[in-house]
């Protein structure tokens, strides 16, 4: 039947075996449709990224002037808890006394604080095991076996530098990017 031949005609090759110019137009049109469809996907996917108002809260300022040595505060950074801890000299000493070789995630206190500001330990309050909030930031909470933080979900113990010492968590508490805007104000979310 004639119709059958027609449908074949579209895909038929020229007598010399190459792709005919006619077929090239069809291939180009289908390709253009493909490019258009792919380009359409971009806004459809990109819209799920954080919106501008969410990003606007991506950096916060924290006034640390009222935190006495030995105290810590809990605040919110990017919708997650943030611990700011004013270490006592004894806590700093305890943190520095540990040799990094015996740590699961070797880091020194100096690497986890800013230069000249070793008494300010700023970490996310998110256990690196499964995301619970560790205890130890508020007065009277269990600080764990190493005097830092203790995660009650699965028993991870962090030391005074927020490093993992015991329990299932694989990494130290995350230190977010932050800088000292002044002696008493830190800006979290911006690189120093």
């Amino acid at each position: 039947m004639a119709t059958v031949e027609h449908s074949d005609g579209m895909l038929a090759t020229a007598p010399d075996g190459g792709v005919r110019r006619r077929d090239f137009i069809n291939i180009a049109a289908v390709s253009a449709a493909g490019v258009g469809a792919a380009a359409t996907l971009y806004p459809l996917i990109n819209q799920m990224n954080p919106a501008a108002d969410t990003l606007a809260l991506a950096s916060i300022e924290v006034d640390v002037s009222a935190i006495q040595p030995g105290q810590a505060i809990k605040t919110i950074f990017r919708k997650q808890p943030l611990f700011v801890r004013h270490l006592t000299p004894a806590e700093i000493q305890a943190a520095n006394a540990v040799s990094t070789g015996e740590l699961r995630d070797p880091q020194t206190l100096a690497e986890r604080t800013q230069e000249g500001k070793a008494e300010w330990l700023v970490t996310m309050g998110v256990c690196t095991h499964l995301g619970c909030v560790p205890l130890g930031a508020a007065e009277g909470e269990n600080k764990g076996a190493f005097g830092g933080y203790f995660c009650p979900c699965h028993g991870s113990h962090y030391d005074t530098a927020g490093r993992i010492r015991k329990g299932p968590a694989p990494k130290n508490l995350e230190v977010p990017a932050y800088k000292f805007a002044s002696d008493t104000v830190i800006t979290v979310g911006e690189v120093a």
């Binding site: 004639a2 031949e5 027609h6 005609g9 579209m10 006619r22 137009i25 069809n26 180009a28 049109a29 289908v30 253009a32 449709a33 490019v35 258009g36 380009a39």
Partner: peptide
């Protein structure tokens, strides 16, 4: 882009139908 793609699709459409008409 759509102008370009639409012109292409028109050419492809004419192209595909060319054989059909001639046979008829």
């Amino acid at each position: 882009f759509l102008l370009f793609a639409t012109v292409l699709s028109y050419l492809a459409y004419q192209n595909v139908w060319h054989t059909a008409k001639r046979k008829v």
